[in-house]
Design a binder for these strands. Structure first.
Lengths: 244, 244
DNA sequence: CGTAATCTTGACCAACGTCAATGTTCGTGG
DNA sequence: CCACGAACATTGACGTTGGTCAAGATTACG
């Protein structure tokens, strides 16, 4: 979308937290594995909202982790329609498949100002091929992503507009909560209406209608750039949401 | 669906082809890894159509591979609606996440008579944790499944009825072709209309309408239990399908 | 040959998309 | 501080796509 080119000159050992922290991709309590991880050199960059960090079909330099800010994985169809595949929150990684194959499978764009760490494809491959423990940890993370992808298929294929929006919000809220990024019933929600619509497979106008109805029944509310879910259990019941 | 209970007394070293063959989950050209694989003990069973091989939420004994026949991964909502998440063809595995977590993430049901191999969860974990090469191979397979899951999200979220049906058929045809299971423009297609509908997120009646239109424009045809796609390139252009 | 399952279609209705107009927010320059 | 414009949010009116109901045709199978 924007022509901004990320400046990857940021420090060469940016945030270890991204890799081995509580939410990191390479979790390990094995000494040897920890050694491998701390030897990795990361590059960091901070990008403005609307920046394409990786572009579908193009060469991708490695594996990325969101340190701060929000981003979306998305695909644009020939018709111009866009489907948002997933929201990436702080601590989430993306483009692992791209790092292994060399070509980005989909585009990723920042929604807010975002700082992102990058690990070279070569390093990723080396580490994964030399440690069964780390490869296993990453595999488990990948399987968890598959489970979420299945849940999205169910949402897109078989849920009503209201259910989709409610489900989507719960997923975001729940993931933020595990990161300690919620305050009571509130959490940040920087997506614009069109982003929400493209994530749940609806038109902007119809997503608005669903939102209005959910607000009318006090199930959720968006005000400013903030989401409020007064009763998680109630909303989960309505949408059939099951936490991870 | 059916009360049939699989009889897992079938041979204890069923089909190595499933594991290490051209399409197997554990591909490796490393001597040590091959040793690990050939030491694995599989159990086999043959089930009639409509058998739930694994049931969502229940304990699952391990990792399965379809040796012969077709199956579907699916989820049933509270409302009674069903979403088919994916079709599993001969050579495909399922329930890896279940084998690692102990609980099936979704149900899998046979569509035809199917023979299935099973590897105990314990063995799977042992192998994956002891060989980086095998864990890496399985990770790559998992990433490929993620890519297909993303493609399904795009289909369900942003494609018209005709596009969905065409895309779905192409995916099936393409996967069968790589297995040498097509003959010219023809391939087997044992799904009933309701299965097709539940896979592409449409009602049975509307899936029929899309099918009729695709037949009218000579893009594809189903007759008996067989699918014919006269012009793959043409259909791919119409649906935006991109082969793996 | 008969029964049950599946396929197929038409008629009608509900959900969702499109268009277009108005209101609101927010950043920028005066 | 205010004026202005651009991007975004919100809503109503209306058209299209897809869902539901119900009936008859066809197929699979004992």
């Amino acid at each position: 979308m924007e022509d901004f080119l990320p400046d990857w000159s940021g420090g060469t050992s940016a945030c270890k937290e991204c890799l081995s922290g509580r939410n990191g991709l390479f979790r390990s309590n094995n000494g040897h594995d920890r050694g491998l991880i701390t030897a990795l050199k990361q590059k960091a960059a901070t990008v403005p909202p609307g920046t394409d960090i990786v572009s579908e079909g193009e060469k991708t330099p490695g594996l990325f982790t969101v340190c701060d800010g929000w981003a979306v994985r998305y695909h644009r169809l020939h018709s111009g329609k866009r489907q948002i595949l997933d929201v990436r929150l702080p601590g989430d990684s993306f483009s692992l498949a791209g790092a292994l194959s060399g070509v980005a499978a989909h585009s990723v764009q920042s929604l807010t100002v975002a700082s992102v760490c990058m690990l070279s494809a070569r390093q990723v491959q080396t580490v994964l091929k030399s440690s069964a423990g780390l490869a296993f940890a990453v595999l488990q993370r990948s399987l968890e992503e598959e489970r979420r992808a299945d849940a999205r298929s169910i949402m897109l294929g078989r849920m009503s507009a209201e259910e989709r929006v409610g489900y989507f919000m719960l997923d975001i809220f729940d993931r933020l909560r595990r990161r300690g990024m919620t305050q009571g019933a509130r959490c940040p929600f920087p997506l614009r209406r069109i982003d929400l619509a493209d994530a749940v497979g609806l038109s902007k106008v119809h997503a608005m209608r669903a939102l209005r109805e959910l607000r009318a029944t006090a199930l959720l509310e968006i005000s400013g750039r903030e989401l409020v879910i007064p009763d998680l259990v109630k909303l989960a019941k309505v949408t059939g949401y099951v936490p991870a």
